[in-house]
Design a protein around this nucleic acid. Structure first.
Lengths: 227, 227
DNA sequence: TTACGACAAATTGTCGACACATTGACTTTA
DNA sequence: TAAAGTCAATGTGTCGACAATTTGTCGTAA
């Protein structure tokens, strides 16, 4: 499957390619979460030297997909419930702010474009009545565009560059296909309306509630599973 | 000068030491902002191989202190006004959230400890009537402890690990010794009171206003300079 | 004179080998 | 038997050298 990758530039160097490959394998769980990474082993697997592999590992660490300890080695991060909720907290804060900024920074054409995309998503949702597509690609795409609309490079870099793949990893590995799609779609519409009205304060509040609702939904679901 | 470094672990490997050295030199401006980094040159300067230096560069990139382009090289980030304001925006969002969390997550003992520290800062401030110390170390220390109090590892990592040194760099290079210290001190006290009252909502609002006030102060100052 | 292209110098990316630290198993000793 | 110490094996950190790419210079042609 060919994922979109917001902040990516074409993989020019060998380390880039190894990085992308490993990224996909970690996100999709082919390299197991929590597992130890053996540099010699993976270097042989990808047919590159250890230096090149280590370069790739450095970028994976930048994406928070692996953790390194000096003189010990690297491990793939573990997908814990605590970690998932922590990311939602960070997203609530940052994407809320991004939304506030987008309300004043986004161009009218961008807003119109995003409205068109939302309409398409809505039709497709009803068409196939399948939640998966919307929840996966569509949701990410909406959030991605709002973040870009903030026009704040630090914000964009953190959300689209450093946290993006970790979010995808959690989505993949926890198998998130909750029945929140319809409600989420309506919330997206309301958020976009606030942006179109140039009401930054409201836009931020709605985005924060939107993300907080997802978080609480997960909390409920998980504590129900543990009963 | 020996800076405190929140999220640091003792430098065990040589790359660690080179990283810390370069970090200080970049933050304090000895390595000029915006300047190009020559790997062979710096490797010779620090008496290490290029591999080790590149390892250090990778960590500097993680702190947003340098930027790399494939097949071209690394540059120290530039300190622009736009960049400074962008960081304040990110801090407003993240530290605001951290403060909200701290209001429920911080232990009573931690709060008491922080209150004691604030008192000391207040006395020292009046004692030497110098703004510099408080503004530099004390302010960073207060914010640092609140962030730690959030008990959210993602939040702590981003603020204390990735953005911390960039903030210090801006403070150093823009020479921030504004007369906001007294007001900032009072604001800190109010924030801490909200945390002690376990009022997360208020704590977040106060922290956001506190950081936003600093940002607006800088905006005023800078547009006054440009007149 | 300007624009284009080839060449040379310098820099970055990649490689394989060595030095060092950690881990686990085994031996020794209380 | 248990605890501590030793040693080997594995893996990470570091090094120097080679390969590939970029950049600036020079020369040629329009």
């Amino acid at each position: 499957m060919n994922y979109i990758n917001p902040a990516r530039q074409a993989p020019v160097t060998t380390a880039d390619k190894v990085f992308e490959t490993m990224q996909h394998e970690i996100v999709e769980g082919q390299i197991l979460a929590g597992s130890k990474i053996s540099e010699p082993e993976l270097a042989k697997k990808y047919q590159v030297s250890r230096s090149t592999l280590r370069e790739a590992l450095n970028r994976l660490e930048k994406c928070h997909l692996i953790e390194r300890k000096p003189n010990v080695g690297s491990r793939v991060v573990e997908c814990t419930v605590k970690g998932l909720l922590e990311i939602y907290i960070v997203r609530e804060a940052l994407e809320g702010m991004a939304c506030r900024l987008a309300a004043t920074a986004m161009a009218g054409t961008e807003i119109a474009e995003l409205q068109a995309i939302l309409t398409i998503h809505g039709e497709e949702k009803q068409l196939q009545d399948g939640v998966a597509y919307y929840q996966e690609e569509g949701d990410l795409d909406f959030h991605y565009r709002v973040i870009q609309g903030s026009n704040n490079l630090q914000l964009i870099n953190i959300l689209c560059g450093e946290l993006y793949h970790l979010v995808r990893m959690y989505r993949c590995q926890f198998g998130m296909n909750s029945p929140r799609a319809t409600r989420a779609y309506d919330e997206h519409k309301a958020i976009l309306q606030a942006i179109a009205d140039r009401d930054g304060e409201l836009a931020e509040m709605l985005m924060r509630r939107h993300i907080a609702a997802s978080r609480k939904n997960i909390e409920r679901k998980l504590e129900k599973d543990s009963e």
